[in-house]
């Protein structure tokens, strides 16, 4: 059977660059622990455990992206940022990546800093910046939440993919003969398509949670504090 690798494998980026990103990832995750503790209470902690477990599960579900022989899977940064906030969300994705590297042989242990930087740090940060912007300007409806989730998820995947391109530029093990732009373009194109899948999964999941337990969606608590819950004034006022 072919190996089922989803993240950066050993030998793709050289040791020194991987070590620098490991230090960077560790520093950012430490900051996330310090800032995330403000958010982590008796209600958010179990929710964050669930978000990590859910991301692990959905990452296993590679979906076709309608270009020959290529699949995509959820990264989860936007989903985590929406449900448990940016600081705890980045930690959730990092937990998934650590479990995958140490137990499932997915993503080299020596490459963990690179994978954490791209998916946990860059992906979650890009997503939350967009979430914070979009939730403020879009209407407070399930559709507004869905659009926010879709766009932030899509963009976060492309940003994460370009994080890898930067790392490969700094320490890639094969000389591309100056064709870094080719790699950047290929990565961006493929991950734009994957981002559509990521966006659909993220929007579906978050809208579902918001319907069942709106109080458990961090982004709605933190960014739309005036609305106690998306008990959207049943659109009747507009009619």
């Amino acid at each position: 059977m072919e190996t089922l690798a989803m993240h950066i494998s050993n030998g793709i980026v050289n040791g020194p660059v991987a070590a620098v990103f490991a230090a960077f990832a560790l520093a950012v995750l430490t900051l996330c622990v310090l800032r995330g503790r403000r958010d982590l209470d008796d209600r958010l902690a179990p929710m964050a455990g669930l978000v990590a477990a859910f991301i692990f599960a959905v990452q296993m579900l590679n979906f076709p992206i309608f270009t020959a022989g290529v699949s995509g899977h959820l990264l989860g940064g936007a989903l985590a940022a929406l449900l448990v906030g940016p600081w705890v969300g980045a930690l959730c994705v990092a937990v998934v990546l650590v479990v995958q590297a140490l137990v499932f042989g997915d993503g080299g242990v020596a490459m963990l800093g690179l994978n954490v930087t791209n998916m946990a740090v860059l992906g979650t940060a890009a997503a939350y910046l967009l979430i914070a912007l979009l939730l403020r300007v879009l209407p407070r409806t399930p559709a507004g939440l869905a659009v926010t989730a879709f766009v932030s998820a899509l963009v976060s995947v492309v940003v994460a993919s370009q994080g890898f391109v930067l790392q490969y530029w700094l320490g890639g093990t094969t000389d591309l003969g100056g064709n870094l732009a080719g790699l950047a373009g290929t990565m961006a194109g493929v991950h734009l398509l994957i981002g559509i899948g990521e966006g659909l999964i993220t929007a579906t999941t978050v809208v579902t949670v918001a319907k069942v337990r709106p109080d458990l969606v961090y982004a709605l608590r933190a960014l739309r504090p005036a609305a106690p819950a998306p008990v959207v004034p049943v659109a009747g006022g507009a009619r």
Binding site: G36, R37, P46, A48, G49, A53, F56, V95, V96, V98
Partner: peptide, 15 residues
């Protein structure tokens, strides 16, 4: 395992 590790860490870190 992910729930145990993640949930455990977050439970210990919580306010």
């Amino acid at each position: 395992l992910t729930f145990a590790v993640g949930g455990g860490v977050f439970w210990l870190l919580r306010r």
